[in-house]
Amino acid sequence: MNAFKTLSVAMLKGFLRDKVTLFFTFLFPLMFLVIFGLILRDVGADKTRIAVVGDGPIVSALRDSGALELEPYNDESSAVQKVKDGDLPAALIVRGQQLDVRFAQSDQVKSATVLGIINGFVDKANLAATGQPPTFTFAAEKVEDASLKPIQYLTPGILSWGVAVSAVFGSALTLVSWRRKQVLRRIRLAPVSTGSVLSSRILVSAGVALVQGVTFIGIASLPVFGLKLSGQWWLAIPLLLLGTVAFFALGMLVGAFAKTEEAASAAANIVVLPMAFLSGTFFPVDQAPAWLQTVSKIFPLRHMNDGMLDVLVRGKGIEALAMPAAILVGFSLVVGFVASRVFKWEE
């Protein structure tokens, strides 16, 4: 029986039978995804609704533009009552060529927005009516900007974090527990290469990362959360694998120093938690102060996050992988080398 294959199977079974590990690998990150996804679902999502009485070319133009959401009313008094009650910021009353807007004073920003939009449509209609070509023109085009809907940045962020956590903890705890229980010594006494032991453990971590990817993205894509993947989402697969190797190396480094599982767990947390917060797991890092953004660039998780965002939701192509991939590979090599230098077979 091939040692690599049997070891991989043994480690996979060990992983699947450990409920605590399963919890922290799948349910724990998913809890964050679900909770933040639900809390932040409506942020910035709604268009402004106003009441409308009557109809005409300007109302049609407004409706077609989608700039405002229009709620039709049959009579003026009930529409104005809505504004008075504070349910709607403004009511548009159309009397032939005459458009009246009654707006609430309480929310001046919203009212100004509504007035500005309606005014713009009226001006445009007036200009069209004169038959003159406009002196100034402007064109508006939608841009998929950095300020994504929460679920769009939460999913790649929490996925990267979940992969980092399970790879760091997986390798650090396995290493420490094997050293403490003398499984490492037992392996050293068998005619098997360190390479097959290490690679079988990495294989299990990589498989876990892919299952995490499928689960997290699958759940975030449910209508209640509404994740929209962009075209080349599958480019996330190489990133997941490279990230696994990088964080596995980090876990080996942690495991080389820690003497007990408890110490390894604490050390891994100290490494992973600040990195997660500063790398944009729970909020978009480009909303953070500039110095923090600079600091966050030292973390491999930040670059993995950036890459994930680019290919999963920003619709970027393979060129977006270059930078994160290079950094993750470099990080793996450097940290892996240091870890192999400080590695200890025995306590």
């Binding site: 029986m1 091939n2 040692a3 294959k5 049997t6 070891l7 043994a10 480690m11 079974k13 060990g14 039978r17 450990d18 527990s177 229980k181 003398q182 499984v183 010594r185 037992r186 392996i187 006494l189 068998a190 005619p191 098997v192």
Partner: peptide, 27 residues
């Protein structure tokens, strides 16, 4: 070499432990 009584892989059954250790030797 027999080591201390805890030198086992996590969560594997008695038979699986032996199969895994055996595989290290191609058994």
């Amino acid at each position: 070499v027999q080591l201390q009584a805890t030198s086992f892989f996590d969560k594997l059954t008695a038979k699986e432990q032996l199969q895994t250790f055996g595989s290290l030797y191609g058994v």
